[in-house]
Simulated assay, not measured.
Amino acid sequence: MIEDKKDLINIIQNNFEELSKGQKLIAKYIISHYDKAAFMTAARIGEVVGVSESTVVRFANVLGYSGYPNLQKALQELIKNKLTTVQRLSMSDDYSNRHIGLKKVLKKDMENIRDTIDNIDLDMFEEVVSSILKAKRVYILGLRSSNALAAYLGFYLGVMLDDVKVVSLGISDIFEQLLRVTEDDVVIGISYPRYSKKTLDALRYVKDQGCKVIGITDSQVSPITSIADYTLFAKSNMVLFVDSLVAPMSLLNTLIIAIGMQVKNEIAEYFKELENIWEEYNIYDGKDKK
């Protein structure tokens, strides 16, 4: 089977002369309307082009895919960073029915988590945990929608580890915040489509300083994989203008718990002190002290 990383458009063009008449119609449609085709079912493409669903399936087979879903997945992987928010929004017709849309979104989140579980590299995960625990200082960088993930991870790692810094846009430029990185530090870069160029530039900078880089992203196609020493993948596929961060958040929870189990004795006293402070100052809702 062919690899997802190859340019699907080039594959179609290289095989064009070998296609049947109906398959050539499919090929022309995908080349001209790849942004729409990537999110259409085989039946829908067949309907638009004027061929049967089985012809679309055979088209995928001719290109080297075991079925249409794998061809569709490869196309989505390659184009999702190119789609603008307006293009994504234009593909939202299937979600106009609130009940259908609700189920489709929830099912997509479930698929993302299932895909993440099936493809997690356990050895890589252990390497990431070990690198974070050994680091003198941990920097966490995630911009745009990934900023929420970076803040969440930073909050919990900050509770468990001595020196954690979340790098974010503000008064100081991100390069200024990363100016003192050393080879003893680790920078965790979180990057999801559409991949922030500033995140990638910052990670290249710290890598040049000899700093270890941990990437958290969606797939092997992500540009962060060529920069990071270790990379963890969590799927974020979503058809609409909102990227699903459910699987990435679940991966971060797993990472936090794994680190917490390694330092639970050290942080036990810390949590006891926090509980006393929370109780004294009524931080959480509960019964009034008497």
Rank of each mutant, 00 (worst) to 15 (best):
I227N: 01
G158R: 07
K6P: 00
Y230I: 05
S236M: 07
I257T: 08
L200M: 11
Y34V: 11
S130Y: 12
A228L: 06
I100C: 06
A37C: 04
T182Y: 06
V166L: 03
E126Y: 13
E266L: 11
E3H: 05
A234C: 09
N81P: 06
A150Q: 00
S131P: 00
Q13N: 14
A228N: 01
L102K: 07
H99I: 14
M91G: 07
L143V: 11
V246H: 12
R144W: 09
V105L: 11
E127D: 13
T84L: 03
G154S: 08
Q262C: 11
K73N: 02
D288I: 15
D109S: 08
K212R: 09
L252W: 04
I113G: 02
Q262S: 10
W278F: 15
E47N: 07
N81W: 04
V128D: 03
L25S: 11
S146P: 00
V128I: 12
L200S: 04
K289F: 15
E183C: 06
Q177Y: 06
R88M: 08
V49C: 05
I257D: 03
E18G: 10
A150D: 00
N15S: 15
I267N: 03
N265Y: 10
E273I: 15
N81S: 07
D243E: 07
E273K: 09
E77K: 15
L255S: 04
K165L: 12
A202V: 15
A234P: 13
A38F: 12
P69Q: 00
E279Q: 12
L255C: 07
